[in-house]
Design a protein around this nucleic acid. Structure first.
Lengths: 212, 212
DNA sequence: GTGCTACTACTACCATGGTGGTAGTTTTCG
DNA sequence: CGAAAACTACCACCATGGTAGTAGTAGCAC
């Protein structure tokens, strides 16, 4: 069962989407939010599998909400669901870590199919965005520098050790802290970088030549 | 207690070295071999912590022995102990994975100190080799291509997956084999490449741009 | 045929890694 | 000053990774 949080400032639209989603086996709406603020609260409270996020909300920019969600470690699959097919919006969303981008004029069946696909980890984009995507924006992530800047000094230090293949134990020894503490830093680092393992972290560092 | 296997085709020299080693607390000679063939047998049989290996033996080249030892997964620290200070020999030994290189004219106390150091994982070289080492041969490893060539097709395939941060489970799924089989390949790959973890493997691949 | 290599699979075991939660200290900043 | 962030540490728990040994199958070479 895929749990979904709807974020949109139009109650009617939320209702429509919710109804549609509930009709599909395997999908369920566990919460709704009408603003960025509420989205942050609900996301942490409900820990949904997926968040459908509108970009154009009154109180808080959708992109800002997206960034805030990611920074708080919300691991949900975040799908943008909006009216805007503006190049800049799409790019910004992808850079901020969106897992998909659907336009609101998508047909209901298409929307459902996309949600199911996305819930399986596959990024989904509306076909209308092909031109934008093709122009090489595929790199879903923010700048490496930006990402690195989110880490504390200690975390960067430990990331560097990870990228040389060291174990938590040896890192602890070299930094004169306990392995437990190293684990804490590793965990926080992985969360902030939205990576799933130290191997991914090591590869990311080396590929982007981050400490050279 | 550091267990040592002596490999040299001169019994008298073996005896002398053995006696010297036994005088040192913490070191012990667990076996001797007078040829490359014997060295392979003894190494697998005794699984020593360290192997002192002569380069100039009648039946089998010392370098060949070294390579064969490494290919069979002998994890011992292998110290070359020989008369040759030829540039090519030193380079070949280092490339083949030697952990140290000592000349036979080394003073007894110096030899002991070196063995102790090496047993702690520190590579040790006779000072006379400074010029050779300085000329940039520090890279202990064979060519990446050479290393890769030692892997089977399946192993290379799996290494590529590792280098993208995948887990054994997902690799198994994608290749339609069981996780247990993936583990076998991972283990063999790590052994052949003399690496200690998949993280090191991933970093190695990315740093050397092996699959691009 | 015999022998060798590669590939597959399984078991069992232990080490390592990652998550969640709690919590005390110090540093930083408004 | 007080709040927030960073760093430290420990616990318990579960997932993943790595090692060792055994073993069956297929293909290839001598």
């Amino acid at each position: 069962m895929v749990s979904i949080l709807l974020v949109d400032d139009h109650p009617m639209l939320r209702q429509g989407v919710a109804q549609l989603i509930e009709m599909e086996d395997g999908l369920t709406v566990v919460g709704e939010a009408g603003s960025g603020e509420q989205a942050l609260l609900r996301a942490e409270e409900l820990n949904p599998d997926m968040i459908l996020l509108d970009l154009n909300m009154r109180d808080m920019d959708g992109i800002a909400t997206l960034v805030a969600l990611r920074e708080r470690g919300v691991s949900a699959c975040i799908m943008i669901f909006t009216v805007s097919d503006e190049h800049d919006d799409v790019v910004a969303a992808l850079r901020a870590g969106a897992d998909g981008y659907l336009l609101k004029d998508t047909e209901p069946e298409e929307l459902l199919r996309s949600i199911v696909l996305a819930s399986k980890g596959q990024p989904v984009y509306s076909p209308q965005l092909a031109s934008v995507l093709a122009s090489g924006v595929r790199d879903t992530r923010p700048d490496c520098g930006e990402m690195l800047a989110r880490l504390t000094g200690r975390e960067k230090q430990i990331l560097r050790h990870i990228s040389t293949g060291e174990t938590n134990k040896t890192i602890a020894r070299e930094l004169n802290i306990t392995e437990a503490t190293v684990k804490v830093h590793v965990k926080n680092t992985l969360r902030k970088l939205a990576l799933r393992s130290r191997v991914e972290a090591a590869v990311w560092v080396v590929e982007n030549r981050l400490f050279e």
